[in-house]
């Protein structure tokens, strides 16, 4: 990686791009966040150093209810709740619905375990009772894109709509692809959601006989082009400066920091690679947000929660003190992971 080509926004670049900038030169900025976790009501709560009371499940009072919610699986309900919070926080949603044309808003979801409960329940019923044992209402839930489609339908989001199921790095990958969609002008805004449900099926599949603690919750960030941020006259909270997915954590961190940019907030992966073992090349960092210590295994939700937390930190000068105005989130890189990913965010 000696001659790594880096085409990203250097930290400290003035926000926004000049009027009339052609497509392909936009910068993706964070304009809203939403967090639906037991023990956390918003992104700033993720910065708490002590473990959140995130064992157990999100209470029903925080999830959509009523007729439209009845046929939805749990991951979809968690995602809908985070989506509403983030869109509202970004000023894109009010009591009358979406405030911008639906065609301008894309949806990117990250979830590894989202529809496993439906798939396993259906295959068990089929093997026991045949076709008569299954319900047509499960058909959409058997397809892994059901979360993103349901969110798009609920809020009228007609831009590109896709789902990352990419293992430990999936949430950061989703943020990276969403930023690309904004940068290339494919969409003006993207709602990015990371979500995982806790249920008996995924707990058994993930842990076998050993009990595992899995996250039940969701997080969302809204990415928006710098031109749109300016046109709407709203402040952005952070800028997505870099995304990369590499063979190991050290390499990913090296690429994301361009071989040594100072990191104000370090958000390490969950799992084996912990904060105290910060990878070589990271250098000094100011502050740590270790979701591996404060949350159960968050799988596909992790990267989005990290970016939400990083946004809250970057947007709050009181928290940052004299630390560098950058936050680096990393995921994966463990013994069973296929790769490691990193996202560098900077102040808006």
């Amino acid at each position: 990686m000696a001659s790594e080509k880096w085409t990203g926004t250097p930290p400290g670049t003035p926000p926004g791009t000049p009027p009339g900038t052609p497509p392909g030169t936009a910068t993706a900025m964070v304009t809203g966040t939403g967090v639906v976790l037991p023990g956390a009501k918003d992104a700033a709560d993720l910065l708490a150093p002590e473990p959140l009371e995130a064992v157990g499940r999100v209470g029903p009072e925080r999830l959509p209810s009523g007729r439209g919610a009845r046929k939805k699986d749990r991951a979809t309900l968690l995602a809908l709740a985070a989506a509403a919070l983030a869109l509202t926080d970004a000023g894109l949603l009010d009591d009358e619905g979406l405030c911008v044309p639906g065609d301008t808003v894309g949806t990117v979801v990250s979830s590894n375990l989202g529809n496993l409960d439906t798939v396993c329940r259906v295959v068990e019923s089929l093997s026991r009772d045949g076709t008569a044992g299954v319900s047509a209402l499960d058909l959409p839930n058997a397809s892994s894109n059901v979360i993103a489609s349901s969110v798009a339908i609920r809020f009228g989001l007609r831009g590109a709509n896709f789902t990352l199921c990419n293992g430990a790095t999936s949430g950061l990958d989703a943020v990276g692809w969403a930023a690309l969609a904004v940068e290339t002008g494919r969409v003006t805004r993207v709602l990015v959601i990371g979500v995982e449900p806790a249920n008996a099926v995924v707990e058994r599949l993930a842990g076998g006989d050993a009990p595992v603690r899995l996250l039940d919750g969701s997080g969302a960030v809204v990415l928006e082009s710098s031109a749109s941020v300016r046109a709407r006259g709203r402040g952005a909270r952070a800028t997505v400066a870099r995304y990369t997915r590499r063979r190991d954590l050290t390499t990913a961190v090296g690429v994301a920091t361009d071989g040594g940019a100072r990191v104000g907030l370090w958000l390490p992966p969950q799992g084996e690679t912990r904060a105290e073992r910060a990878p070589a090349g990271l250098g000094e960092f100011g502050d740590v947000c270790d979701l591996g210590r404060t949350l159960p295994s968050a799988s596909g939700a992790l990267g989005v929660l990290q970016c939400a937390a990083a946004t809250a930190w970057l947007a709050d000068p009181g928290r940052r003190h004299n630390a560098a105005p950058t936050a680096l989130a990393a995921a994966g890189g463990g013994a069973t992971d296929d790769a490691a990913a990193a996202v560098l965010l900077t102040t808006a």
Partner: peptide
Amino acid sequence: LHFGRALRERFGACDTHTFAGA
């Protein structure tokens, strides 16, 4: 569940992305 580990073992690929989209 996603294809990353197999693509890494077989092709050494690391910048791999599994999209589930109907």
